Simulated scan of single mutants.
Amino acid sequence: MNKNIYEMEIILLSTYCDIALDILKKHKNLSVNKVITFSYIIKKNKYMNSSIYNASNKNDLVLKCLSQLNGLFDDYCENIQYIIGAIHLLIENKKISEVLGELIYIETSEIVIVDNSFINNAIKESKKYSDKQFLKEVVRSV
């Protein structure tokens, strides 16, 4: 494999490690499926400046958030391997743990800044969804 491809994979893994860890620091625990989906959406919004909603949105936050996946099926599928790899690295390095399909942030003395952004509000609302219902909505969105 080309050196540039290795470097790109390292950058993607590092980016997803930061994003997944940040999600779990703020929300303490979340299912693997939700971490994968929200990590992709956060990366897309953060690095591609494509956010279409803001924190003033209050209704159907999860559905609005997932609507940002529309038309990105191939890219989403390609990124899943890197997100899973990042989660694996975080578990191996004991930054997070996995219990019955839930990823749990391992407490440290770090200060966590609570963010009331649109995506964080959507993540909070997603905790009301079962994993099955959440995945149905993801499939509808992509």
Rank of each mutant, 00 (worst) to 15 (best):
K28F: 05
D22R: 14
A122N: 15
L66D: 04
E110P: 01
I52H: 07
N120K: 08
L13F: 08
G101V: 02
E125R: 10
N54H: 06
S67C: 10
N121I: 10
V35G: 04
K127P: 02
K124Y: 08
L13H: 09
I111E: 14
I113P: 00
N59P: 01
N49V: 03
Y76M: 07
E7S: 11
V138A: 08
Y6M: 04
M48I: 01
S117H: 07
I111F: 13
D74T: 13
I36N: 05
C17Q: 14
N121T: 06
S67K: 05
M48F: 11
I23T: 08
S126N: 08
S39L: 02
N70L: 01
C77P: 00
D115W: 04
E110D: 15
E137K: 15
E78F: 08
I10M: 12
L69R: 07
L63Y: 09
M8K: 15
D74A: 07
N54A: 08
V139I: 15
A86M: 05
D74C: 05
L89T: 09
V139L: 09
G85S: 07
Y40G: 03
N29G: 03
I36Q: 02
F118E: 12
A20Y: 05
T108M: 00
I123C: 14
I123R: 13
V99N: 10
K95Q: 10
I123W: 13
V138L: 13
E137H: 12
Y40D: 01
N54I: 02
L13V: 05
L72H: 14
I19E: 09
D18Q: 08
I119N: 04
K26W: 00
D115I: 13
K64Y: 12
N33T: 03
L30K: 06
R140V: 00
E102L: 13
F118I: 07
F134L: 11
S130R: 11
N93P: 00
I87F: 06
N49L: 08
L13D: 08
K58I: 10
F38T: 01
